[in-house]
Nucleic acid binder design. Structure first.
Lengths: 397, 397
DNA sequence: GACTTTCGTTCGAGTCTCGTACTTAATGAT
DNA sequence: ATCATTAAGTACGAGACTCGAACGAAAGTC
């Protein structure tokens, strides 16, 4: 059992202090954009001299670069400062996703720019060798000899333990244990962390997508199953074993609906892809997203489909009401097959949510659609790989 | 809107480093008990010399004391060390609870010992002057001139904003805004933080009660309403506005049950005190706890009551299944009127929970009864007041 | 061209942690 | 009894870091 003693328990040396302040500068540059040293001092509260030293070290490590002074700048009074920005020249992070019908990869640089992003369909579920091949290809393509790969992350649809390594249960891809982490580590030669796909996607939306800068966000993904990722105070809520966010089998919606898990009344059985298709008498095509796009097309012509989607939206809203009561997020992002369905699901979900808000003082969380699409999980995995840098746990040198 | 930039954003000086390491030593003493300087060095990873300096400073501030060498110690080889322990001599924290039918107070010293604990019934709901009087009395009684009051906390049944000051909505006590915080601050002359009562109780259980040392715990309180407190990684999950844990009005259980809030199907309408009493045809006596004790007595004689409580337990389990899916706690603590009802509710709740666990890999969270009773919230408020000390945010001097 | 304003750096002072060496206090062997 | 051994706690100097003040540099303004 995890105890509170684990947490926050490392001794701090002066070197640690340096890392801490360095990460403060890095975060400031990442979140608030380029700035002169003087501006950075104001932003961070550090002394001008300290910022100077830190920036010099970062510059030497090729983590930041001085920008050309923009001629269009407002003519200020004194000596103009030279803006410093994060540099994408050296440090990269890599994110992978191993899913049922595809594998994908994203490479991110320190500035947050996506350097490479690709998906490939796979024939069988849980094709680890395809993932490793994709990883190797991405490494050769985007990283090469000129860059340093800081770390990598792998997103999987399944339960991953709190060690960010061990897959406890992932029936859809049929991979368990630490073998996946080991295989990818071997292929890339850098530290690898495995995470749940919804958690990764949530992290991605909170850093790049529809919920940028939001500290308390909830991400709901719809594929065949339903999964959630929870961001509280900017950090993922993982739970005791690392299994938080497994919302697909909560008893919500139609209590008679049979679920693939063998029980009745699971949320997934009301709003999962198969449930939606059953409602409108449609069969699945290649991917959930393609299927949903087709469905959205039909909704333009058939009022019955609109009604069916409204019912789905209602169940979505009911579940979100539950989650909002528990977690009080500022923004809820819907991903997966919900994106093509758009307002047809969102609007009734909002209505159901409004009807279910606990207190007058409580504000309905904003419902948004994912902007990252299928790349969300891989992107989030990459961003998570950088998180240790921005947290000051690891040094750029 | 809160953004991620708020978090973790203070610059670190060498002085801050010192505070950080000092808090590391304090936490080690609090969680793992007294230890010699050498043992502390091993526990924390700090150098022996550093621990010596830190302990000397803490001793000078009367925050720790050297213990008499226990004669019964195993005869070790070299020079025996002198154990150092947290001292209760100087620093105290005070916790208050303002509730519908009572106010209560708890005073805690640095060692975690409860120095004073008292409850008083009040005539009208939200009797702020009674709370202030109790606070003054406790200050005179337990703090006096000999001690330093580090900080205080107030627990209230209602929605408190993330600033830990502003009450946004608390219909049961009819107090809103910052007036309560100001009144208590004025009476005590130390910083005051206001929090939700369930959050405080959860914090108390995680530090003193049924979930000591558990990093991921969920607390469920039953009074007239139902509320939850969420502990993740040892810290309270507050949500965007600070309203996380408002689980009473989630749509769970009997979907036709009418709730006091005007809607149907709220969890509270199935497992709240009034719902339970209605099931067995009983009326409320003075307090929820007394009522539940009476009810437990009836259950010894009347099988129908046992059945009714089993139904309640089932609904409790259903809701906990939901919460466990979302949050994955290691331990769930039930408080309030659930305590007297004990296994009569717990056992069916466990059964319902087992039937609803999402994945085979998922372990059912342990269900326990609160051990702190009515004092939980006040105790948690006091403990929270100390949290800034143990986090290294504030110095003992 | 002198003045003002602001940026970035230099430098010395002050803190803090750390490793080493040293002193102290106990046990166990001779 | 005496001395080696073992381990705890302390003293001290080295090294790292941040900070404020002072200073030089690079603009615009009068």
């Amino acid at each position: 059992m995890t105890t509170t003693a684990d947490r926050a328990g490392r001794p701090g040396s002066t070197e640690g202090l340096r890392r801490q302040n360095t990460s403060l500068v890095l975060r400031s540059l990442r979140q608030l954009g380029p700035a002169t040293r003087a501006e950075l001092a104001k932003r961070t509260g550090l002394a001008k001299a300290t910022v100077g030293v830190i920036v010099a070290a970062l510059e030497a490590a090729d983590a930041v670069t001085e920008l050309e002074r923009t001629g269009s700048a407002v003519a200020a009074r004194g000596r103009p400062g030279v803006p410093v920005a994060l540099s994408g020249r050296r440090f990269l992070a890599l994110g992978l996703e191993l899913n049922v019908d595809y594998v994908s990869v994203a490479v991110l640089d320190l500035t947050g720019t996506v350097r490479l992003s690709a998906s490939r369909p796979v024939t069988g579920p849980g094709d680890v060798s395809a993932l490793v091949a994709l990883a190797r290809w991405a490494r050769a393509e985007a990283v090469g000899e000129a860059h340093d790969l800081v770390a990598a992350g792998v997103a999987v649809p399944g339960l991953v333990r709190g060690d960010n390594r061990t897959i406890a249960w992932a029936p859809n891809i049929g991979v368990t244990g630490e073998s996946l982490a080991a295989a990818v580590e071997d292929a890339l030669g850098c530290p690898v962390r495995v995470s749940n796909d919804a958690n990764c996607a949530a992290y991605a939306e909170a850093h790049h997508g529809a919920a940028v800068g939001v500290a308390h966000a909830l991400y709901l993904t719809g594929t065949v199953g339903i999964g959630a990722g929870i961001v509280d105070r900017g950090e993922l809520v993982r739970g005791g074993a690392g299994f938080a966010g497994e919302v697909g089998h909560m008893p919500i919606g139609d209590s008679t609906a049979r679920c693939g898990c063998g029980r009745q009344g699971c949320w997934e059985a009301s709003i999962g892809l198969h449930a939606v298709l059953a409602r409108v008498g449609m069969t699945e095509v290649e991917t959930p997203l393609a299927t949903a796009a087709l469905l959205a097309g039909r909704a333009d012509r058939e009022p019955a489909v609109v009604d069916a989607l409204a019912e789905v939206g209602h169940s979505v809203g009911l579940g979100l009401a539950m989650l909002a009561s528990v977690l009080d997020p500022e923004v809820v992002v819907l991903g997966g097959f919900f994106v093509p369905l758009g307002e047809r699901v969102l609007a009734p979900a909002r209505a159901a949510l409004d009807a279910r808000l606990a207190a007058p003082a409580q504000v309905r969380p904003e419902l948004r659609l994912s902007t990252l699409g299928i790349q969300a999980a891989a992107l989030g995995a990459a961003e998570q790989a950088f998180s240790r840098v921005f947290a000051g746990d690891v040094e750029l040198a």
